[in-house]
Design a protein around this nucleic acid. Structure first.
Lengths: 192, 192
DNA sequence: CGTTAGTTTGAGAGGACTCAAAGTCTGTGG
DNA sequence: CCACAGACTTTGAGTCCTCTCAAACTAACG
């Protein structure tokens, strides 16, 4: 959550605006966050387990992935200032996801339980949660549309344009599954 | 919002639980909702306009769609008890979506502005918004995964299994674009 | 400097697309 | 109540994109 505060720009998302206007919110979060660090390639294995934490990347990079028919499929990337979790455990069930660190990373964790307690602290805390979810929801709608009607080539172009840093920091095999295509197809797209 | 209250089941989503336990929340929403009705085929045209309302279907059905390269693409269906809006206007910008009613429909509308005011009314109101978004986010994650690595045939099977009512009430040409495939391909899948 | 992970290249198969045409359904006016 | 027009769906033929399987090349790391 720290980084967003520094990035004050006119197109700031509503949740970022709320954070800049209420620094105590960040403080409250920080109080409950546990600092952690993991080396490159470390895996948090939540498959068939209940994940009880959200992770906020301070330095480094991570991906969420699962296996489908034996194939490794990446569903999410997170870099500095971004969050990652086994999202399907958010309302208490077992997850199918794992989280792998793509670089030596430092991060903070906060348990869903602490987060729920924090939400009860004030209406502003609840609002932060709501506005944050609103933003990630809108972002995800864009991703759905991207997957729904763009060709592999178009999806790659969108990624290059919107998230160029991913290309520079993530192995192509992970990017290909994130785009919903094979490594070979991605390689051929890039060759053009 | 009304229908959810009636549907009490053990796997109730957290936001539904909150509503059943706090009927006043529903009352507050209902107070601000405007009843509306539209005939089949009626279109709410928000393309390049700012949409300021959310709609909750009481009776009937609707879809959100937009045009890509001249083609009509459905991104969302809503039936009794479900919500629909031009989602990309949620933080104030112009939309690319339209909403079409697929049956004669009665519904309620509530403006984003009223909704924001309602959220300020109490922490429970905020919480309802947060939990609702949490649920639709989780649902959307499933849809992303579905699009990301299932074949056209698998996506159709998922739809049949998870949302059989859609098949019975919506024209196949809309279902095909929702699945990200052509009408012809959908027809051939169904023929098997 | 060898081993392994990651990426590229090649050939062939299959799925989904486009364009075109033929059925089928639905609603409206006579 | 029937007939017709327009919308919707199915079927067909050919093409292109993406996949799989296989092998070669390249980079990273101990």
């Amino acid at each position: 959550m720290n980084k967003e505060i520094k990035n004050m720009n006119p197109a700031m998302a509503p949740y970022q605006k709320l954070l800049t206007e209420n620094p105590e919110l960040t403080d409250d979060f920080n109080e409950l966050m546990q600092p952690l660090s993991f080396p490159k390639n470390h895996i948090l294995d939540f498959e068939n387990k209940v994940c009880k934490y959200s992770y906020f990347i301070k330095e480094g990079a991570a991906r969420a992935f699962h296996f489908k028919d034996g194939k490794d499929i990446t569903s999410h990337f997170a870099f500095e200032g971004e969050a990652i979790t086994a999202i399907d455990s958010l309302n208490g069930g077992k997850s199918k996801y794992n989280i792998e660190f793509l670089e030596d990373s430092t991060l903070f964790s906060i348990s869903y339980e602490d987060m729920e307690n924090l939400y009860q602290k004030s209406i502003l805390h609840e609002r932060l949660g709501r506005l944050f979810l609103q933003q990630v929801y809108i972002d995800l709608v864009e991703r759905v549309e991207d997957l729904q009607f763009h060709t592999a080539h178009e999806r790659y172009d969108v990624l290059v344009k919107k998230h160029p840093h991913i290309l520079q920091r993530v192995a192509l095999k992970h990017i290909s599954s994130y785009l919903g295509i094979t490594q070979e197809t991605l390689s051929r797209i890039r060759a053009i």
